[in-house]
Design a binder for these strands. Structure first.
Lengths: 161, 161
DNA sequence: TCTCGTGAGCAATTTTATTGCGTAACTTTG
DNA sequence: CAAAGTTACGCAATAAAATTGCTCACGAGA
C-alpha cells in the first residue's frame, strides 16, 4: 500500500480534478496511459482513493452558513455513542461529526441556509435524542475549504525519483 | 439558477459518485442522455457544481488524526486577516478554516499523522505568524464525514414533480 | 546465465461523452 | 385565437476516453 512519487503526483492531480483524462495525467507524471491507468485502478482497489464526487457550491444550494456544534454528555458508553451516531446520520445537515478528547465530547459541523434553519435543525435534533450540554458557534465565513489531503506524510518505500 | 426536482436528483447522485455515466444518471432520474448531460453542463457553468474530485482515505495516506485549532486574537482588522489567510493557505495540513463569531475568532481543522506531527505543524505555524491565544482539540475519531451537501434547502421554482 | 516477477508501452476494442438535428409543450404577443 | 419564440426533450451520429490483450525491458534470486 506504499505510494511512490508518481503515485503521489497522480493523487495530487486527482484530488484537484478527477475529470482529467488518464492520458493527460500520464503525460504530466511522465507515464503512458496504460501504466498510469493501472496505478489508478490499484489505488482504487486498495481504497486509497475512496470515491470520486462532485463538489457543490454551498451558497448556490442555499447552505451558506456553517455552525459548529459542541456536545458534552454524561453518557460515556458505547451504546449511547452508537445511538447518537445513528441519529446524526439521519441529518444531512450534519456534514462532519467527531468524537473529541478534552473539554467537549462531540463536535459536529452543520450546514444550513440561515440562523432560523439552524434553530429548526436544533429542535429536531434534540427531539431525537436527549442532549444536555450543547453549544453552537457560528462561522462568519469560510476562508479555506478543501477535500485534498496533504500527501507529504504518505508512506513511501522507494522514493529516489 | 433555480433547481427543479430532477436537478436535485442529479446532484444527489453526483455527490455520491461522480463517475456514474450520464446515460445511467438519466435513466435513474427519468431522462434520456442528452437532456441530462445538458443539465449537468449548465450546473457546471453556473458554478453549482464547482468541481469533481477524488476523495482519499485519510488513514491510508497517513493523516488519520484531526485536530481542531481555535485561535483568539486582538488583531481585528482586515489586513491581518488576509495575512493569516495567506499563511494558512500555505499549509496543506489545514483543510478547513473559518472566521468565527463569539468566543473564538478563527477555527481550523488540521489533519496530521499523529501528535508529534501536530506539534511540528504548530511550531511551523507560529513561526510564520504571531498568534497569542491558540487552543487545540484532538478528535478521537471521525464518526461522519461527507462532502455531500443537503439539497433540501435549494431554491426551487417549479416543483410539482 | 536462466527464470520469474514487476512495470512499461503499443494497438485494438469497448464505453462514454458530445454534438447536430428535429419534435412537442408552453408562453408571449398581435 | 393563432403565429412565433422559447425551452426541454429524444434519436442518431461522431469524437473522446477508458479498458483490455499482448509484448518488451529490467532487476532479483536460483
Amino acid at each position: 500500500m506504499a505510494l511512490d512519487k508518481i503515485d503521489r503526483k497522480i493523487l495530487t492531480l486527482l484530488q484537484k480534478d478527477a475529470t482529467m483524462p488518464v492520458a493527460e495525467i500520464g503525460r504530466k507524471v511522465g507515464l503512458s496511459t496504460t501504466p498510469c491507468w493501472r496505478r489508478i485502478q490499484k489505488m482504487e482497489e486498495d481504497g486509497v482513493i475512496q470515491r470520486r464526487v462532485a463538489v457543490l457550491d454551498p451558497a448556490k444550494v442555499n447552505v451558506g452558513v456553517t455552525v459548529f456544534v459542541s456536545v458534552k454528555t454524561n453518557e460515556h458508553n458505547d451504546a449511547w455513542m452508537r445511538k447518537f451516531a445513528g441519529v446524526v446520520d439521519e441529518f444531512p445537515e450534519v456534514v462532519e461529526f467527531y468524537r473529541m478528547s478534552g473539554d467537549v465530547d462531540y463536535l459536529m459541523r452543520v450546514v444550513v441556509p440561515d440562523i432560523g434553519a439552524y434553530d429548526a435543525f436544533y429542535k429536531r435534533l434534540i427531539g431525537k435524542i436527549n442532549l444536555t450540554d450543547v453549544s453552537s458557534a457560528f462561522a462568519m465565513g469560510q476562508i479555506k475549504y478543501t477535500t485534498a489531503l496533504p500527501l507529504d506524510f504518505a508512506i513511501v518505500v522507494d522514493d529516489d525519483k
